[in-house]
């Protein structure tokens, strides 16, 4: 087990009063609490701070922690023989556990002994996982492999961190930012306590073609000048295979063409729509003949798309 200096984490001396410890904790909590901090390392940092405070704010735990002695942070150590936290018939495999697991358990046993003369049920911890899935997976529904480690008791009553691996079904109909709850899939409860829950935050991996607007999808549809002018029927990809889309004559850039029911599925069997956003694109390297024809168009056309500027255009070239 690696030593963690809880006093150092909170930035207080080993002789700090409980008020000083509380003040130091609150200051750091404001800075690093994952619900308010924008620091990406905030969550890990706050876990340390919370762990340090949970032990040092409780006089009995603090005394037990002090009895572990002072070691450099990160150094491997074992609690001394007859350490108060290891009494009560519970045995540990000290190599596999974390200092925080030791103190979390310390509370459980102590309170259990006081109230029931036995072990108090300890509910399993809740976990949150962010899952990124592709639009294709969101469209069809998918199974994802979930992996994380949780502290657990084995058959010998030893506390260990174990890998938690299972498959979870992400049903059709999820949206970007969707939260799902898998009951009982968090950390295992101990002494008859309920298992914790697992919260999944679903995000969509950015797609090279489609953008997401709730259950609707948008795709940029590049068209040539002549397709936009004359109209055309073109093939457009969807998440369920390509479709033929009729582009009416006289389409301008930015115009949205709706392809009904080709968006993402909703929870009620319905689908969002796919919108093809017209973008007129000119050839990057036109042939001489194309240039010649364009010049002809320029000469014979009286079309002025800038008439609303209200400017005299007789000298424009």
């Amino acid at each position: 087990m690696k030593f963690k200096d809880y006093y150092e984490i909170l930035g207080v001396s080993r002789t700090a009063t409980s008020d000083e410890i509380k003040k130091a904790y609150r200051k750091l909590a404001h800075q690093y609490h994952p619900d308010i901090s924008k620091d990406p390392a905030g969550e890990e940092k706050f876990k340390e701070i919370g762990e340090a405070y949970a032990t040092l704010k409780d006089s009995e735990k603090r005394a037990a922690y002090d009895a572990l002695g002072s070691h450099p942070s990160g150094q491997e150590f074992r609690p001394p023989p007859n350490w108060s936290g290891s009494q009560g018939g519970q045995s540990y495999s000290f190599d596999d556990i974390d200092l925080s697991d030791l103190f979390a358990n310390f509370t459980g046993r102590r309170q259990g002994e006081q109230h029931h003369g036995g072990h108090r049920p300890i509910p399993g911890q809740d976990y949150e996982l962010a899952i990124q899935i592709s639009l294709e997976d969101a469209y069809h529904g998918t199974m994802v492999d979930l992996n994380f480690t949780v502290p657990e008791y084995d058959n010998q009553g030893q506390l260990k961190r174990v890998a938690h691996t299972f498959k979870a079904r992400i049903p059709k109909g999820v949206s970007h930012g969707q939260k799902l709850l898998l009951r009982g899939k968090g950390g295992k409860g101990a002494n008859g306590g309920k298992n914790g829950n697992l919260y999944l935050n679903i995000g969509f991996i950015a797609h090279p073609l489609f953008r997401v607007a709730e259950h609707d999808l948008l795709i940029d549809l590049p068209v040539t000048v002549w397709e936009a002018t004359l109209g055309a029927t073109v093939k457009v990809p969807t998440l369920d295979g390509p479709v033929n889309l009729k582009i009416p004559a006289g389409m301008n850039s930015g115009k949205k063409l709706r392809i009904k029911d080709r968006g993402l599925p909703k929870q009620n069997q319905a689908h969002g729509d796919l919108f093809a956003v017209v973008q007129i694109v000119v050839s990057p390297n036109p042939s001489e003949q194309e240039i010649a024809l364009m010049k002809q168009v320029a000469e014979i056309s009286s079309f002025n798309p800038r008439v609303h500027f209200g400017l005299d255009t007789t000298n424009e070239k």
Binding site: G141, M143, F166, K167, A168, R169, P171, S175, Q178, K179, L180, L181, L182, R183, G184, K185, L198, Y199, Q267, N268
Partner: peptide, 15 residues
């Protein structure tokens, strides 16, 4: 597809 027996709850306005 089997959902590994977990009870799934949608946390959104429709539920």
């Amino acid at each position: 597809m089997k959902n590994d027996d977990a009870e799934l709850l949608w946390l959104d306005e429709q539920h």
